[in-house]
Computed example of a mutant assay.
Amino acid sequence: MKILYICTHNRCRSILSEAITNHHAQGIIEARSAGSQPAGEVHPLSLQYLQETGYAVDGLQSQSWDEFEDFAPDLVVTVCDSAAGETCPLWFGKSTKVHWGLADPSKLQGSDEQKKQAFLDCIEQIKTRVQALVEIARSQPDQKTLIEQLANLGAQ
C-alpha cells in the first residue's frame, strides 16, 4: 500500500506521519508526504523530535503534491484542517481519501518544554494510528471496510 500524507505546508504533521509510517510499516506501507503550499523546509523541531524518539529523518523534505503524480498513492491522508477542505488534483481521483486531523505542535506558543510535549504528543498519536493502520493493511479489507476503518482511526 502506498500512502501520501498531505498538509498545507508539509513541514510538520505530514512529515512526522511519513517518517513514523515508514519506520513502523516497513515492507507493508510506503509513505510519502506533500503539501498544497509547501514551506520549502521541514520545521526544525519536527526533525529534532523525530530523531530524539528514534525515527530516521534522512530524505525528509517539504515538497509540493505536484511531485507525486507518478507515485500513484492508494491512500491520501490529510492531516490538518486546512488541507481537509482542499481540492486534490485529479490524479488523486483513484486514491482512497481520509482525514486525520492533528493539532499542529509547531504553532504552539509556550515554553520549550510545552513545545516538546506538544511534539511528543503528536508523534505518539500518529504512532498509535500507524500501528493500527499496519494491521488494517495486513488484513486487506474491501474498499468500504477500509474507508470505515481509516475514518475511525482519524477520530481517535
Score class of each variant (00 low, 15 high):
M1I: 10
K2E: 07
I3T: 13
I6V: 15
C7H: 01
T8H: 08
L16R: 03
A19D: 03
Q26Y: 09
E30H: 13
A34E: 02
Q37W: 08
Q37R: 15
V42R: 04
P44K: 09
L45W: 12
Q48W: 07
Y49D: 04
Y49F: 14
L50V: 03
Q51V: 09
T53V: 03
A56S: 15
V57T: 15
D58A: 14
G59W: 02
S64F: 08
W65D: 00
W65G: 00
W65I: 10
E67G: 01
D70E: 13
D70H: 10
F71A: 06
F71R: 04
L75F: 05
V77P: 00
D81W: 06
A84G: 01
G85V: 10
G85K: 13
E86L: 13
C88I: 13
C88P: 11
L90Y: 10
W91I: 01
F92C: 14
F92Q: 00
T96R: 12
L102R: 07
K107F: 08
L108A: 05
L108M: 09
Q109K: 15
K116G: 02
L120P: 03
L120F: 12
D121V: 12
D121K: 14
E124W: 08
E124D: 13
R129A: 09
V130H: 01
A132W: 10
A132L: 11
E135H: 13
E135C: 08
A137I: 03
P141S: 05
K144A: 14
K144F: 11
T145P: 00
L146H: 02
L146K: 08
L146M: 11
E148K: 11
Q149V: 02
Q149T: 04
L150S: 01
L153V: 07
G154L: 07
A155S: 12
Q156V: 14
